[in-house]
Design a protein around this nucleic acid. Structure first.
Lengths: 347, 347
DNA sequence: TTGGCAATCTGTAACGTTTCAGTATAGTGA
DNA sequence: TCACTATACTGAAACGTTACAGATTGCCAA
């Protein structure tokens, strides 16, 4: 389909979207001059510059993305790579909003690149890099030895990870301090007289699984509480699985009197399992859980919660990627978010 | 930044991404022939065609999006326009996955275009159309008289709406049959002996608000139940607001003995309000609620639920937009999803 | 006056693709 | 043999942008 209206667009055809040529015609300048004037190049006279920018604003000139991208290779796109099965629901929503918030007044667009359970997590990243579809990439579910991070570092494409890696390679990340979270949770439970604690871990293989486990273990020995092993369960299992396993656990006589849970959805299942076993939350057992939206206290007011802000994570990750694209030192684009105190229901 | 390696790429420089020129060089054909061979043009010899396609596959040729877009105007992008404040959490996540599922084996990318409370909902749509940033658009929160739909129809850009409009204009949509949902809910409650029902409506102004209200009203008179007005509340208010208003309502002596709620988050607040007033779910009052993930039965097993599948919505919307882009009749790209039966907790 | 230089501005080419307007070759009918 | 046509292919131009390598002007030092 050829959309031409006149044989040779002199920029006067009105209806069409204005281009540099349109601006050049209107200002009586050359296309090159207009291009440079718009990006404040120093060799353009101050008045010319102002004039061009004024006209551009007046007629609503917007650079053609395809033109820029073809010429410069710059896509003005950042891609968020998400697992279609295992991401937390609120995570997806909030992180997207966090990212869009930051890129709102930049020329960047956000594309969502999904991958499914069956795929190698490296696939979508490889696709993005090979096709040059984005200037920067955000990935979640970071692993200690993360092939995606390694790959992108090799290829020199800016990226940021949600969660840290542990490969001795430096790259931007944003992470929630899950070591601190687990520690706080244990100390809080100990403060309420709980001494036999079970941990519902993040998915094995992800970096923050280790952080959480360590924080839990270190705090346990600090307060002199003991762990009730619950290794068969992690937060990306199905609600039914977690519920069933929890009920099983709670029917044993060496059952825990406290839980630390790394995700709200898992917590719902844990509570259901506890109640299936005929026990009562707050009396027989306490549960400290992370949550990303303020819903757990509605669910059971006895729940003890720590908030994790995924929207903040999205913003930080976007800032990090943009920073790296902008030439900043990747090592300076790392942030760690400190957990709030454990919150009990008030009122 | 100029990324050229050789003065004139003859397609042999190896490291660079292959282009049509590379293929032309390798096959000994002209660039034009290669281009046409790849898209099965009839005037290319059958053997040549196969040969070109083989080589292309071998070296992993991928058309350059910027090149195509610049030349043809086709972006191979569809944009999902979302409100950053009012969308339901699960909606965002599920609809995105639904869309990506459908476009997974097409050349399309999904970009997320957000707008905030303070903005005119038309803004992001106008931006997309004016900058030609997408071949198709998906919008949510459809209104009976929707300026966005009207605008896109005028501009001739393919789109689909989540929810119907009511302007006498035909365009693709996917909708959940909220009239049927509200009706089912009322009949179910009536079947349990409930006769004084309150409706927690969708946001006023959206089309499905009307559908829900009508379904509710029609079923009420059908079963001979009465409505307890609860117009001060709708599902996009804050949890606290809904909770407080519900508690107020439930302390009155003419309180309802049944609720129909259009969203899970609101339902949590309603239940909290009910319990704040010292009443018990299932005994004093029943609540039928829509939900999009299977969590409400964990929350209170007495809740009665109807499932709405947002992932399906995403898929249907994507299919609709792609269909329209592909030249299908917009009127044939409309779908309505029928609610499941009301589900009580089993087991 | 001349040469040099700084300050501004400009034309051309190129990014990768598709469309247009051909060209070359072989085959057909007279 | 010739004109004609169908088949298979091709180069050039264009989409909108930026980088490169000039051009033009005015001013100043020599």
């Amino acid at each position: 389909m050829d959309r031409r209206v006149t044989k040779k667009d002199d920029g006067t055809s009105g209806k069409e979207r204005p281009t540099l040529k349109t601006l050049a015609f209107m200002t009586g300048l050359g296309v090159t001059t207009v291009s440079r004037a718009l990006k404040d190049a120093p060799e353009i006279g101050a008045e010319t510059r102002r004039r061009v920018q004024l006209v551009a604003k007046q007629i609503g000139y917007r650079p053609n993305r395809a033109g820029v991208r073809l010429r410069t290779g710059k896509t003005n796109v950042i891609s968020l790579v998400l697992n279609t099965e295992h991401e937390l629901m609120s995570f997806v929503s909030d992180i997207i909003y966090g990212v869009t918030e930051v890129i709102a007044d930049t020329p960047y667009h956000l594309i969502v690149t999904p991958y499914s359970r069956s795929q190698d997590p490296l696939d979508p990243v490889r696709y993005l890099v090979e096709t040059g579809s984005a200037d920067g990439v955000i990935i979640s579910r970071a692993q200690p030895n993360d092939p995606r991070a390694r790959y992108m570092l090799e290829r020199g494409i800016p990226f940021a990870t949600h969660g840290r890696t542990d490969m001795g390679l430096v790259h931007p990340y944003h992470d929630f301090d899950n070591y601190a979270f687990a520690g706080e949770a244990v100390r809080y439970l100990a403060g309420r007289g709980r001494s036999r604690l079970a941990l519902v871990t993040p998915p094995v293989g992800l970096t923050y699984h280790g952080h959480t486990v360590n924080g839990f273990a270190d705090a346990l020995s600090e307060v002199g509480a003991s762990e009730v092993p619950f290794n068969t369960v992690s937060i990306d299992q199905s609600i039914e699985q977690i519920r069933m396993r929890t009920a099983q656990l709670m029917r044993r006589k060496d059952r825990p009197d406290g839980f630390v849970s790394s995700a709200a959805a898992a917590t719902l299942a844990i509570v259901a399992g506890i109640e299936d076993a005929g026990l009562k939350l707050g009396r027989d057992v306490d549960v400290v859980s992370k949550q990303s939206s303020e819903l757990l206290h509605l669910f059971r007011r006895e729940l003890l919660v720590v908030n994790e802000d995924f929207r903040l994570a999205g913003s930080e990750l976007a800032r990090a990627v943009l920073g790296w694209i902008g030439g900043a030192d990747p090592g300076s684009l790392q942030s760690l978010s400190t957990p709030s105190e454990v919150l009990a229901y008030r009122g």
